[in-house]
Design a binder for these strands. Structure first.
Lengths: 128, 128
DNA sequence: CTAAGTGTACTATTTTAAATAATACAAAGA
DNA sequence: TCTTTGTATTATTTAAAATAGTACACTTAG
């Protein structure tokens, strides 16, 4: 599935959110697929069910997954991308932060582009 | 100088660290320049001096700035970039996170590259 | 030499978010 | 009916961040 680092500074529920999204992009999970239940995933990863529930709720809010009472949660059949203005600024900030760090590590533009290329290949190439 | 958002989820002291680094890259602050004193910056931004001190200490640990007792803190004359393996993984993770988000916003590779181009221009073009 | 300004150290307290814990409920399905 | 589902609720614990106040050693300007 994906790896959770309990000692990371980024909250566990966010790590779950990121992991699920990444797996969907990679094609490891597909639209319509059933997600493990809250309790199931919690047991698998030795987490508290409430933490998993929180992640699922946020994922549903973002329309990444759909939930049906008593049935379970599934990967959304269609995800409508929308470029929210606020989210765009936020995204640019994340990139800026990463680029500033890169520069301080002596990594130039060319190397950054290569790194991004690699990451995208990892995401796209992983289909199935 | 730079903007601090007290309501952001990223700690204030980290925002200071990022802001200083960004300003140095932009050339708004140059090697050898004197930084505002801990108490001075704290007053300017209505922050607690301890918070500013924490940021300065981390910046010094990273050799971005140098401090001299009783004299003040200054932007380091030379910064030796080193590509730490662990930091590289960390950096790649930040980029991955951003790219996953971008994809979910319907932003493709080409647009990402353009965005990065813009950010780099912002950093380099701002010299002086 | 003195006074003010520097970074630093220390302890204590408050604030906030995250995570855990333990139940309970309504809906769906076997 | 019984189990599994997501959800809701309340309480507690944990951990990090931020604030507050004080003190110390050093440097420099006067």
């Amino acid at each position: 599935m994906f790896i959770i680092d309990p000692r990371s500074s980024t909250p566990i529920y966010q790590q779950i959110i990121e992991g699920v999204k990444e797996n969907i992009l990679k094609g490891l999970i597909e639209p319509g697929d059933k997600m493990p239940s809250v309790r199931e995933l919690a047991k698998m990863m030795t987490l508290n069910p409430n933490t998993v529930a929180k992640a699922y709720q946020e994922l549903e809010r973002q329309k990444v997954i759909e939930t049906f009472r008593g049935r379970g949660t599934f990967v959304s059949m269609e995800y409508e991308a929308k470029k929210d203005g606020e989210k765009m600024t936020e995204l640019k900030d994340i990139f800026k932060k990463a680029i500033v760090e890169a520069y301080y590590m002596g990594i130039d533009k060319k190397e950054i582009m290569i790194m991004i290329d690699e990451i995208i290949k990892e995401l796209e190439g992983g289909s199935k």
